[in-house]
């Protein structure tokens, strides 16, 4: 139980997504339309219920929050105007800030590699980002072991031959301002 006056997990979520979350009557419409529901451990309507019941552990330890593709179908169709896709975002943000292990650890590693690329040059350099992700996620090690790396090299070669791999890192004149945004962002946390 939360101490009186202390913000609960549910309060933090509501602050971002609004009180509409209490209107959920579990119609399953979000889960029925979700394209990734086949691989989720908690369906979107169950995620909403876990937030309403303040079940922090249950929601944050789900695979669902990481494999949600942010396609916005749930938000679009919810009859009670709950921004379900944003709930998923807020849960991911809380989980990232807590520093705990995500149920789908590769997804936050990908996000970090992507953001590191922006921080470095102001834009995403696909080649560097992919290299960083495969190294840090353990993907590279696994693929070297299974022989899967050959397919990746083949794909990379095909991209290169078609002029789709930009080798040089991009240059953005505003990179200093972008880095300032990252610095400010680190100070704006959910807690």
């Amino acid at each position: 139980m939360a101490v009186q006056g202390e913000r609960t997990f549910r309060d933090v979520v509501i602050e971002s997504v609004g009180e509409e979350i209490f209107d959920c009557y579990q119609c399953y419409k979000c889960s029925a339309g979700c394209p990734i529901s086949f691989d989720m451990d908690l369906l979107p309507h169950q995620i909403i219920r876990s937030v309403v019941f303040n079940q922090k552990e249950k929601a944050l330890s789900s695979k669902t929050i990481w494999i949600c593709a942010s396609c916005e179908t749930c938000t679009t169709r919810c009859p009670n105007e709950i921004d379900i896709a944003k709930v998923m975002d807020v849960l991911r943000q809380i989980q990232v800030e807590s520093g705990g292990e995500a149920k789908e650890p590769r997804v936050p590693v990908f996000h970090q590699a992507f953001l590191d690329s922006i921080k470095k040059t102001g834009r995403v350099h696909e080649l560097t980002m992919i290299r960083n992700y495969t190294q840090k996620s353990g993907d590279l090690k696994e693929k070297l072991k299974s022989g899967e790396w050959k397919n990746d090299v083949k794909l990379g070669m095909k991209m290169f031959l078609r002029g789709k791999l930009k080798v040089m890192s991009p240059k953005c004149e505003g990179v200093k301002e972008v880095r300032k945004i990252f610095k400010q962002a680190a100070e704006h946390k959910k807690k």
Binding site: S16, S70, D89, V90, R92, Q93, V96, V107, P108, F110, H111, Q112, F114, L115, S117, I118, G122, R123, V124, C172, E173, G174, V175, E177, V178, I181, F182, Q184, A185, H188, K190
Partner: peptide, 17 residues
């Protein structure tokens, strides 16, 4: 001087960003 929009990686990890 445009910069990357942040895509999913920003909204999935930091609202300010």
């Amino acid at each position: 001087g445009w910069n990357c929009c942040g895509a999913s990686s920003a909204h999935a990890t930091n609202e300010f960003l």
